[in-house]
C-alpha cells in the first residue's frame, strides 16, 4: 500500500513480518514497515475478529497493535524496527470465534 521513495540498502534493517523477511530503512516504525511490506490487516480484533491496520500513526488509536518477539499488544507505530525483530499479525479471535 506504501512504497519507499528510495532504496533501503545498504544500511537497511532486516526483520520478519509474519515469517516473511523484509528489508526496510533504519529508524522507521514497525507500523511503517508493515504498510510498506503490504501486510494488511495487521491485527484482528478480540471482539469480533474484524480486520484492522494502522490508522493514526501517532499512538492515539491503538489499531496498530501487533505481536512483537512474542509480546502481544505492542503499538507498532511507536516501535522502531530492529535487526532480527520478528513481528506478526495479532489475532484477537480465530475463525471459530475463539480468543
Amino acid at each position: 500500500m506504501f512504497r519507499l521513495l528510495s532504496d533501503p540498502a545498504p544500511d537497511g534493517v532486516m526483520l520478519s513480518l509474519d515469517g516473511r523477511s523484509v528489508l526496510v530503512p533504519p529508524g522507521i516504525s514497525l507500523a511503517a514497515a508493515a504498510l510498506i511490506a503490504g501486510l494488511l490487516p495487521t491485527r484482528r480484533t478480540a471482539v469480533s475478529g474484524a480486520p484492522r491496520a494502522p490508522y493514526c500513526m501517532i499512538g492515539v488509536c491503538y489499531d496498530c497493535l501487533m505481536e512483537v518477539d512474542g509480546v502481544a499488544n505492542v503499538q507498532a507505530c511507536l516501535t522502531p524496527v530492529r535487526p532480527g525483530m520478528a513481528a506478526c499479525t495479532q489475532r484477537g479471535l480465530d475463525a471459530a470465534g475463539h480468543v
Partner: peptide
C-alpha cells in the same frame, strides 16, 4: 475501521518518518 482507511496526518508521518508514499 477498514484497513486502507487512515488519517491524512498518518500519511504525512509515513512520508516524513519513513520516506514512504502511497503506491
Amino acid at each position: 475501521t477498514l484497513p486502507g482507511v487512515m488519517t491524512a496526518g498518518a500519511a504525512q508521518v509515513l512520508l516524513k518518518g519513513a520516506g514512504a508514499v502511497p503506491s
